[in-house]
């Protein structure tokens, strides 16, 4: 049987506000699925909910990985079940080395951690991640692009079964995006299933998405082949918007002194590509 990540009727809220209103998606091993949508559609929320980030409350639906109920597991066990999240804004963890964190991540999994340094060096070379960054505390003093390479390196080392890429392309220059995308694509040839959350079609061309899903206001409004992304490129999201979306997609409340994290804010301030052709007005 082919491995599957199955999301059914997933509903979730943040601070009492419903963001996901019933998401259905199935990703099989080796497939690349793209989730695209305007700002505020719930793309990042979907990635956080899948990984179990604190502050997100699931109100309905199921997520299973090969039949294992992921939503019943704490975050670390979801990771050990084979789920990986490439974060849009990888967190800086002062004083903690990449080697120590990966050693802890693999402890008890049966994998030989003595090979980690060599594996890290090999992965770093594959994606052009400067080896001297391997000794830095996690993500500390790394540029946005280096953080994404660091995430991709960890994906290569941990070899998950399914990866959620939350805006892999933000903060990456063309060369870095290509290097990271090639690494992910190589992993898909070995069976990695990918859920790629993005604003832009460029990463999809690099990753050769099999399926494209349009997420609007917390629900999948359309699914199709790569041609769907091309249609988006030309026409924007207008075809998938409904009258009630206008009200919902007003200015997002941003409390700069509150608990809102950078992960909730897009488009990204560090994004070198601007709002892109699909950004909501």
């Amino acid at each position: 049987m082919t491995a599957e990540l199955v999301i059914e009727g997933l509903r979730a809220e943040v601070e009492g506000r419903e963001i996901l209103r019933g998401v259905d998606l199935t990703v099989r091993a080796g497939e690349v699925h793209a989730v695209m949508g305007p700002n505020g559609a719930g793309k990042s929320t979907l990635s956080h909910v899948l990984m179990g980030r604190p502050g997100y409350r699931v109100t309905g639906g199921t997520v299973t990985l090969d039949g294992v109920d992921l939503l019943a597991l704490p975050t670390w066990e979801r990771a050990r079940a084979g789920l990986f999240l490439v974060m849009q804004y990888p967190t800086e963890v002062p004083g903690v080395s990449l080697l120590d964190s990966l050693t802890a991540a693999l402890d008890g999994t049966g994998r030989d951690v003595s090979e980690l340094p060599a594996l890290m060096a090999a992965e770093a070379e594959r994606i052009g991640f400067d080896e001297r960054f391997l000794d830095r505390p996690l993500n500390v003093d790394l540029s946005g692009g280096e953080k994404k390479r660091n995430e991709t390196l960890q994906l290569g080392v941990l070899a998950p079964r399914f990866a959620v890429l939350d805006e892999l392309d933000s903060g990456l220059d063309v060369d870095a995006l290509r290097a990271c995308a090639r690494r992910v694509e190589a992993a898909t040839e070995e069976g990695l299933g990918v859920l790629c959350i993005t604003h832009y079609t460029r990463v999809l061309h690099e990753l050769h998405a099999d399926r494209v899903h349009i997420l609007v206001r917390g629900e999948i409004r359309d699914s199709g082949g790569p041609e769907l992304a091309d249609r988006l490129e030309e026409d924007g999201y207008a075809a998938w918007l409904r009258p009630e979306d206008e009200v919902a997609s007003g200015p997002r409340p941003v409390d700069v002194f509150g608990s809102t994290t950078m992960a909730d804010l897009d488009p990204t301030p560090e994004d070198p590509f601007g709002p892109g052709p699909f950004a909501a007005d």
Partner: peptide, 12 residues
Amino acid sequence: DQRFYLESRGVP
């Protein structure tokens, strides 16, 4: 956030 980052890699 630091805790979550490590946990998301599989660290208990």
